[in-house]
Amino acid sequence: MPAETPLPEGEIAKRPLQFFWVVDSSGSMDGAKIATVNHAIREATQRDLPGAVENHPEVQIMMRGIKFSDSASWHVGPDAVPLDKFLWPELTAGGSTATAQAIRLLTTELNTEKMPRRGFPPVCILLSDGYCTDPESDYQSAIEALDRLPWGAKAVRLAIGIGGDKSQYDEESLGKFISPGLRKEGIGVLQASNAEQLVHYIKWASVSASVASSMTKSKSGQADGANVLLDPPPPAPQVTGETDVF
């Protein structure tokens, strides 16, 4: 019997990409908004994202979801679920808008002790249709804590504002959630005025951010700009009738 050929050991594993949905489930989201969010996230995670990373077998997307209304809690988590096993549970709406608490919950998971060191920059997508009901100072300090974390600063953070016009949600506050590097590149809050635009932006944000994160190259600490290169969002479908608008 021939001698067994020795092989180098050490388990090879896909690089994890931690993905966080941070979704407003306050009372104002009730009806078409929350129904569209549920539908679009399912479409994105079951069809669009798997297709987008099909040619990147080295990437493993790990999904989690945070919901916030009177308080923030895990909708999916805290244990992350691989994309191919992820199912978005029906999210219902009711209560106020504890956005600051949601960002703090996100921040606890981006701690260097909890994040896999070899992972790609995490992707965090915030969806909201209103104004944070936590004290303004809490929101500001939550954003600052997120920015201070190495993984928080490196994360691809995008925000989608849901409303027929920008006065319906707090664009300035949502804008602070966006990665500082992406803000410098001109990426702002994505305004979804109707269901079609909301689906469009949920799919674009989740796919583009994940692909961009998984293409991340090493970058010297001196370099300016975003650590992840993201193309500007494509134009959203036009609103064709007043009845479509949220």
Partner: peptide, 17 residues
């Protein structure tokens, strides 16, 4: 040992001042 503050592809470089 690796620097815990350098994550997500950020690295020191010979090109840095």
């Amino acid at each position: 040992p690796a620097d815990d503050q350098k994550v997500g592809g950020e690295t020191d470089s010979l090109s840095m001042p």
